[in-house]
Structures are given as structure tokens and as C-alpha cells.
Write a protein that binds this DNA or RNA. Structure first.
Length: 589
RNA sequence: GGCCCCGUAGCUCAGCCGGAUAGAGCACUCGCCUUCUAAGCGAGUGGUCGCAGGUUCGAAUCCUGCCGGGGUCGCCA
């Protein structure tokens, strides 16, 4: 289901004009129109819409851009039915189009009629895409760094859904590696403590996390003392399972507090037990993509006790990686990489040929091999895109918050959510593009000032709500719903700032589309800030000049038209915030 | 040493997968303000887009090589 998109509509018009010209032999036929776009000009003084058609088509058409521009411009000028009032050719061959105010009024009504659907598109065409994010090890609560990937993945998923993709949100549970053994041992110690045993000094390399105390107690309550004084081989398998279960409960609760809900949780252990890893490796082997070889020692970096040894290797270099990668540990079990190949292959088997993973930047060195493996394992049918999230620096009033795992002092994501709210966390995580480091200042993010983008956007929404509340009180007989205001005459919206705001609203679908195409959810947050700035600007004009206020005593027509604009602003900002998973605030308190 | 990311105004960052005199916020300077929602408003100063080549009608954007910062580098995940 698509919604109105003025720029797309004009793009279609320009293309059909080119085809028309071709049909009349004024231009060659069969020109490639994929690069023809209609967009807002960089400078509003150039016009309302601009197209690069003449510059893109000049060369293939064998004519100077300005000649092509003349041909197109002439026909565009004739389209008064679309509200075109002026067309001119500028610069190297841009065609700038100006629309009459009535066209913008119509576009405002379109926004209101589209409602929540405004900005939807069908560019995904219903194709399936899998977004895997968070996937933190099930060994403890989520920390702030996880929070960033969580938000980026979650909003990307929403964005793709809005752009017409069929999205599955997935979490990969790393419950098969050595760290869950470590977790199991830690929980066992807590269990012994719960049973009143003295355990002496806490062993090296075992999580001392206090959050494991209740897990040990729960284990005791559930299973009694059966594991006491038993060798590890007896208790570890069960304790490990128990512990992972509890940790996932913890993580799910953290995610719920952020408003995140995955569709699928996939277990690494399950994949291994089901033989998926063996099957994938066998398949790769049958295609001669696995061999036994010895890797060279990495240069320029000291590796302790390095010694050449033969390993089972995947021919990653055949698929663009820099070296071949090991698939088996010395004990014969699969490496994390081997299991991960099976996992991504499994996603492909489940019907996902578009896969997106959100990882921390520290896994950057892993991207090439994983993409190589996906290509190899699926015979090129599936593609993997990895988006890396840089570090989050947690600050408190400009001072870095010291986190030390050893001292047991680290701030969890939940701590932050409880302190500033999920909405604030979600928005702030998108105030930087994903591959740039992000400062998260606990004080700054709750500051009520223009410097704080979360506040600034919420305030715009609250102001719009407030104006509508006032209007509803003053004129209870008016229909101030989106549908109601869509039907109101808008001719009195003639102020330039008002028209500018309408133009910004009309451009909203472009922002969503660009963000979805580029897989960059932060663009929504930036777009919202711009919209909010536009609205605050219009609002502020009413300070100096009472005639420019939204509610004008004694002028119902103007008031209603302006309320339509306010309603549309509220609609778009509200839907943008919702897209980010941030609840819009009706009033600031 | 290899690979990945980053380098845009004094600071923090945008820049729509090549376009028209490169944008915003903060800071600074100068005015205004006490308001339908208060936690201000308007204007101005300010940039060799790290450096050097290349691709073309056109490059902050694409390619190559340097410089600087961060991450990462066999049986951890």
C-alpha cells in the first residue's frame, strides 16, 4: 500500500514526458531513465521541485543538456493541471519547477487523508528480510553498548516494514560456546552458596556477577541439593541449561523494557545438536571449499606461543576474504564461525535470502568471512549485509561513567532505561549514524532545552497537541480529526513559512524511503528534528505577530486551515516517533 | 604488516548511494523578548570538505596512493 509522494508523482510525469518526446522522435527512444530523479532543490529560491533529467539524458540523447531541458520544460509548463506555474532551466541543466499554493494545499490534504499510512511505500514488494540484532551472549544483563544495536536493529526492522518488506526480527542465542560453561560454573558456585556452603576465594575467570545470586537460589529451590559435592561432569550440562534459560529471561525482560520484541529466537546449541553444522560442512566439503592447511603467522603483531599447525579451513579467499578461515577447534568441535555458517544457512533454508545482521564494531574483522560464507553456503542465493555499531560512551554531566567488570561496577541498559526512559534511550541512540561513536550523557538527554533533540521533537508534538486542545475547547462543534480537517478549505495558507512547512511534510516520504533503502534508521531522527525546527519556527512567528498565530479570533477560515497544518505536523511527527518506537507526548510536564 | 571504520566551521555532527554559492546545533558577536505551552526568538561572523592524483559536463560524495585517529587480526564469541 503506497501513500502520496509528490516527488515520485512528478518523477513519473517527467519520465512520461521523455517517453512522449521519444515517441515523437524529438528524443531517441529507449533512453535509460533510472537515474532521472525529482527532488527538492538545494536552495528553495530555485523552486519547489527540481529534476536532473536533462543532464542525465543529454549524453545518451546526443544533445546538449540545455536543449533536452528546453524540450522537457516546455511540456512541463503546460501542466497547469498539476499546479505548475513556472518552469525554468538553471545552472548546468537543472529544470526547476514551481507550483501554485493550491497544489501545496492539495498535498497537505493528502497527508491528512493518508494518516498513519503517510510515508508507506511498496519498494520492498513484500519480499522477506531477516534482521538479526542484539544477539548478546546469554551470560548477563544487556549493557548500554548492546542498547545501540538493539535500537538500530529494531528501528531498521520497522522501517523496512513501512517500506513494504516482510520483516522477521531475530535473536541468535550463543548458548553453545565455552562462555556458557563459565556461566554454568558461576551459577553452580552461587548455588553452593545458597545451600550454605563456604566456597572460599572466587576462582579466576568466573563471572562474579551478583545477578547470578538469585539464579543459584532458584536452582537450589527447583532441584534441591542433588548437585552438591558432585563432579562437574554430573552437574554442568544441566546447570548450564538452567543458567542460559534464566539469562534469556533476564535479557528478554531488558528488551521488553525497551519495547523490543523479537519474532524468533534461534539457539546455536540446537543447530549443533540437530546436525546442521555437520551438514553444511559436508556440503562445503563436497564442493571442495574445505581443506586442511596451515595458516601463516599474522605479521606485525606478536602472537604468544604461535606455532604453525594444520587446521580445517574454509576457502574464504575464493569469495573475497583475505585469508582462509578455520572451522574446527583442536578438540574437533566446530568454531564459532562454523556454527555461524550453519546458522546463516539455516536462515536461508527458512526463506530468507535478504539477511541483515547488526553487530558491534569490534566484530568488524568478521564481516568479510561471514559474507563469504553466506555466498558459498547458499550458492549465491542469499546475501548478507552487516551493519556495525560503534561504541557508546556513557557520560554523566560530561564526566565518563567508569565501568569496571572486575569491581562489579557496570551500568546496565536497564539502569539507564529506568533512569531516563525507553523513549529517550531509543531516540538518543539514533542521533548519530551507526558507524560513528556516540556519547550518551545521562544528564544532557533529559535536559529540557533546544540542545536536546529528544526534547525538541517531543516539544513540537506537544505544542501541536496543545494548539488542537485549545481549539477544541474554544470551538467544540468543529471536527478536528485528520479526516475532518482534510476537508477544510486551505486557501488562506499563504504565509511563506506555512507553505515551507507543508513542503517539508510533503518531503517526509522521501526521508523514509531513503532511510529504508540505505538501511540507516538515524535519518528518521534527523528528519524529525528538521520537521520540529520548521514547526517551532512557524509557531514562533505568532509571538511577534498575533495575526500569524494558529488560532485567530474572528477568522474561522484561517484558523481551520492552520489547524489542518498543525494536525498534519502532529500526524507526521507522531508517526515518525512511533516508527522509532518512541511514544509521542501530548504534553510536556 | 593485512583488513574494516572515521577525518566536513573553534566544538559536536548532518549531507538524501555524483549535481547548482557545502548545512544544523553549540560557542562567539549584535539586536529582541516575558509569550496560543514556560523550559527563549531573530540576525551575523566562521570551512583549502585530512593531503595528492584520477574518473566526467560536474566530486565532500566514486577510484588509487599517502597522512592522522579508532577497531580488529589461528583453535573467544
Amino acid at each position: 500500500m503506497t501513500s502520496p509522494n509528490l516527488f515520485k508523482a512528478f518523477q513519473g510525469v517527467v519520465k512520461s514526458i521523455v517517453e512522449e518526446l521519444a515517441a515523437q522522435s524529438l528524443l531517441p527512444s529507449g533512453l535509460d531513465l533510472t537515474r532521472v530523479v525529482v527532488e527538492p532543490p538545494r536552495d528553495a529560491s530555485h523552486g519547489d521541485l527540481a529534476t536532473n533529467a536533462a543532464m542525465v539524458l543529454g549524453k545518451p540523447a546526443g544533445k546538449p543538456p540545455r536543449v533536452v531541458a528546453e524540450l522537457i520544460a516546455e511540456r512541463l509548463s503546460a501542466r497547469s493541471d498539476l499546479g505548475v506555474v513556472d518552469v525554468r532551466i538553471d545552472g548546468p541543466g537543472f529544470i526547476n519547477i514551481r507550483l501554485e499554493p493550491a497544489a501545496w494545499h492539495a498535498s497537505l490534504a493528502d497527508v491528512l487523508r493518508a494518516g498513519e499510512r503517510f510515508g508507506d511505500s511498496d519498494s520492498g514488494g513484500g519480499r522477506r528480510v531477516n534482521v538479526e540484532y542484539v544477539s548478546a551472549n546469554p551470560t548477563g544483563p544487556l549493557h548500554v553498548g548492546h542498547g545501540r544495536g538493539t535500537v538500530v536493529g529494531d528501528v531498521l526492522a520497522s522501517l523496512l516494514a513501512k517500506a513494504g518488506w516482510s520483516v522477521t526480527k531475530e535473536y541468535y542465542i550463543n548458548d553453545a560456546g565455552a562462555q556458557v560453561d563459565v556461566l554454568g560454573r558461576a551459577v553452580y558456585l552461587r548455588y553452593c552458596q545458597a545451600a550454605g556452603r563456604e566456597i572460599g576465594e572466587w576462582p579466576e575467570g568466573v563471572y562474579p556477577g551478583e545477578y547470578l545470586i538469585p539464579v543459584g537460589q532458584a536452582l537450589l529451590a527447583e532441584r534441591g541439593e542433588v548437585f552438591l559435592d558432585q563432579p562437574e561432569a554430573v552437574w554442568l550440562p544441566e546447570v548450564r541449561l538452567f543458567a542460559v534459560d534464566k539469562m534469556m529471561d533476564l535479557i528478554r525482560a531488558d528488551l521488553a523494557a525497551m519495547g523490543v520484541r523479537h519474532d524468533v529466537f534461534s539457539s546455536e546449541r540446537r543447530l549443533v545438536e540437530d546436525g546442521a553444522v555437520e551438514r553444511v560442512l559436508a556440503d562445503l566439503e563436497s564442493r571442495d571449499l574445505i581443506y586442511t592447511g596451515t595458516l601463516e603467522k599474522p605479521k606485525g603483531r606478536e602472537v604468544e606461543d604461535w606455532e604453525p599447525r594444520p587446521q580445517t579451513l574454509f576457502r574464504a579467499t575464493q569469495f573475497g576474504d583475505d585469508v582462509d578461515r578455520p572451522l574446527k577447534k583442536s578438540d574437533g568441535s566446530g568454531t564459532y564461525f562454523a556454527n555461524d555458517i550453519a546458522y546463516h544457512w539455516d536462515k536461508h533454508r527458512r526463506g530468507f535470502d535478504h539477511q541483515i545482521d547488526i553487530w558491534g564494531a569490534d566484530h568488524g574483522g568478521y564481516v568479510k568471512r561471514m559474507r563469504a560464507a553466506v555466498t558459498a553456503a547458499t550458492g549465491g542465493a542469499a546475501t548478507l549485509e552487516v551493519r556495525l555499531c560503534q561504541l557508546v560512551n556513557l557520560l554523566d554531566g560530561g564526566v565518563p561513567v567508569k565501568m569496571s567488570k572486575r569491581a562489579g561496577r557496570f551500568v546496565t541498559l536497564r539502569d539507564v532505561v529506568d533512569e531516563v526512559g525507553a523513549g529517550v534511550v531509543r531516540f538518543v541512540m539514533l542521533t548519530r549514524k551507526n558507524d560513528a561513536p556516540l556519547d550518551f550523557d545521562l544528564q544532557a538527554v533529559v535536559e529540557q532545552s533546544k540542545d536536546n533533540p529528544v526534547f525538541y521533537v517531543q516539544y513540537a508534538y506537544a505544542r501541536a497537541s496543545s494548539v488542537l486542545r485549545h481549539a477544541a475547547e474554544a470551538r467544540p462543534e468543529w471536527d478536528l480529526s485528520e479526516a475532518g480537517l482534510a476537508a477544510v478549505p486551505l486557501a488562506s495558507l499563504t504565509d511563506e513559512a506555512e507553505l515551507g512547512l507543508i513542503k517539508s511534510l510533503a518531503g517526509w516520504p522521501r526521508i523514509i524511503e531513503a532511510a529504508a533503502d540505505a538501511h540507516e534508521p538515524h535519518r528518521i531522527a534527523f528528519g524529525l528534528s528538521d520537521l520540529a525546527a520548521g514547526f517551532h519556527g512557524v509557531w514562533n512567528r505568532g509571538r511577534d505577530d498575533a495575526a500569524l498565530r494558529f488560532i485567530v479570533e474572528g477568522d474561522d477560515a484561517t484558523t481551520q486551515a492552520r489547524l489542518a497544518l498543525v494536525r498534519a505536523v502532529k500526524l507526521v511527527i507522531g508517526s515518525g516517533l512511533t516508527l522509532l518506537g518512541v511514544e509521542p507526548l501530548e504534553e510536556m510536564r
